[in-house]
Amino acid sequence: MEMKELRGSRGVLAAVALLIIFIGVTVAFVQLNGNVARGISPEYNRLAHLQQPNSLSAWVYDWRGFDTLIETGVIYVGAVVSVLVIGRGLVRMKQVEGEEPVPQTSLDLKIGSVNAILKYFIFPLVILLAAYGILIVTGAATSGGGGFQCGVVVASAYLIGAVFFGKKNPLNFRRKFLIAIGSFGWALYALLGLPGYLVTGYWQYNVGTDLWSSIAGFPAQIPSILHTIFGDPYRLALVLKGGTFYSTAGIVPLINIGEAFNVIGAICLIFLVFIYGWSDTEEAKA
């Protein structure tokens, strides 16, 4: 809709509609203000010293671990759809079926215009960003980061490298490699739910930490071998007011690594297809 079409009665109607929406949203927020139930949050905060210092990460992968698995698939679907729309032009409207597919041309990146000195500054930045991404995912159980944050940081490093170095990108990911690590990450996340499912019937149950099996009515006891495999490698000594606690994040660090691979694959694939397109000749040139 063009702005000139909003003059007169249509403009008045639009303003009234927006006002109604604004009032509805504002009234909802005013009612929420100060009236939010604490829900499950205090329970996870109460158990944080037994599980992992980062309660948010515990909540995301434990209480809604299955949701997060599906959400991890969503970003991969987003990448695949972007590739389909841009790269091959497969999505075509019905009325233009007879027309030629969308032309396959890559975006114009004027690499030559970038100052050579700037490139010397950017090269260590790309390497440092990639290293920072790895640092985030390896410390996800104790810090505020996680697999998604790692993936975004590494993808940023890839994008900066692509903009400044073009085909000589220090992080020269090829599309087959990106597809492979994206799929591997999602598969790793999904398969880490298997031990919990086989023992308890709950997919994504954290068999390493095993917070809930002591509760009456829980379907099964976790074998000690699973505690040893998934729990002990990530055990931390937390020195807190109240004593020293030996917590373990269980399968969460591994899930974070899986999600990091998935997000690196998906977001770098999106960047790659926006920059280079998807035709076979472009890949050969790159």
Partner: peptide, 14 residues
């Protein structure tokens, strides 16, 4: 912030 840091009181944190 919901991250346990050294010295945090276990009783008060939740």
């Amino acid at each position: 912030v919901a991250i346990l840091t050294p010295g945090t009181s276990v009783a008060e944190f939740p």
